[in-house]
């Protein structure tokens, strides 16, 4: 009994500081976001009017918001799929294959993740430059003959979102690769040896051993993908295209910004924030449910 009481005190003491900070700086502000989202408020004056759920009804008829939401979802889906596949393959190659300079690759691949978005954006501004000076265009120019016109990566409304996605994937591969490497290297070697003896190819080993055994880790990263794609797409777009051309690369958070500040509709901006919060939470929960499998033991 005494031990139990002691335990409860210990638990409470350990949790209290974290929960206190968390409540003050995250829970209360988030509740405030919901409260402000029911106001018509420009964000500067004391002039606030309660409008109930009006901001939300406007929101769901606002085609610009819908478009920015579609862009965001497209970004999440493509960045997740490509980054996951590439980083899984690279992780298993670096861990499992007899490759020289393993450490070198591991160290280098992570570097984009430690750069600030400003650096990455100015790098990609040079890479995507629409003139023949642009890195990608000068490479493409080698394969194309006379009369070829350069690709306007940031100017073509059909391409710009993929240009942003490209930069995001470049930035994310190393991060997820290191995560997957950690769990792949924990898989016992004898499983692969047995498979090899049974004549399983590399591909079969990858799909039948590696993937199932790190499945939980992959599921965890799905949540990270959603959270970080929403956040990073905003940062990338803000510096690289400011949502342009003509809103073609607008994401939910950049739209939140332009509404809350440029359009002086702060209450509306917070309604966007609230919707983003709820949607990402639901999305992640749904994906987590859908990907639940019985964990394989080894």
């Amino acid at each position: 009994m005494k031990r139990n009481k002691e335990k409860n005190i210990f638990v409470a003491l350990c949790l209290a500081p974290a929960l206190l900070l968390f409540t003050i700086f995250m829970v209360i502000p988030t509740l405030n976001v919901f409260y402000i989202s029911t106001l018509k408020w420009g964000g500067l004056s004391a002039n606030k009017t309660f409008v109930g759920l009006k901001n939300y009804t406007i929101l769901f008829e606002d085609m610009n918001f819908i478009a920015s939401l579609q862009n965001t979802i497209l970004i999440i889906v493509i960045v997740t799929i490509i980054t996951m596949v590439v980083s899984l393959i690279f992780a298993s190659i670096i861990v499992r294959e007899d490759i020289k300079f393993k450490n070198f690759f591991r160290v280098i691949f992570y570097i984009p993740n430690i750069l600030s978005v400003v650096v990455i954006s100015s790098i990609f501004a040079q890479i995507y430059d629409p003139s023949t000076n642009g890195l990608l265009n000068s490479i493409l120019g080698l394969f194309n003959g006379e009369g070829w016109t350069t690709i306007k990566f940031l100017g073509d409304q059909g391409i710009v979102i993929y240009a942003i996605i490209g930069a995001m994937i470049w930035q994310a591969i190393g991060y997820y690769m290191v995560m997957y490497m950690a769990s792949i290297s924990a898989i016992p070697e004898h499983l692969y040896e047995a498979a090899q003896i049974a004549g399983a190819s590399r591909f079969t080993q990858f799909t039948r051993i590696t993937i199932p055994l790190i499945w939980n880790n992959i599921r965890t990263t799905l949540t990270f993908f959603i959270i970080s794609s929403i956040n990073l797409s905003f940062l990338f777009v803000k510096v690289m295209t400011s949502g342009g051309p003509d809103g073609a690369s607008e994401t939910v958070l950049s739209y939140l910004y332009s509404q809350a500040y440029t359009n002086a509709s702060y209450g509306y901006g917070m309604a966007i924030g609230a919707v983003v919060f709820i949607l990402s939470f639901i999305l992640s929960g749904a994906i987590s449910k859908a990907t639940k499998r019985d964990v394989l033991e080894y």
């Binding site: 501004a125 430059d129 003139s131 350069t150 306007k152 100017g155 295209t241 342009g244 051309p245």
Partner: peptide
């Protein structure tokens, strides 16, 4: 000019 839209943003307008 054909590259104008691609550069009509904070990073590229000088071009």
């Amino acid at each position: 000019e054909e590259n104008t839209v691609a550069n009509a943003n904070g990073e590229g307008f000088t071009k």
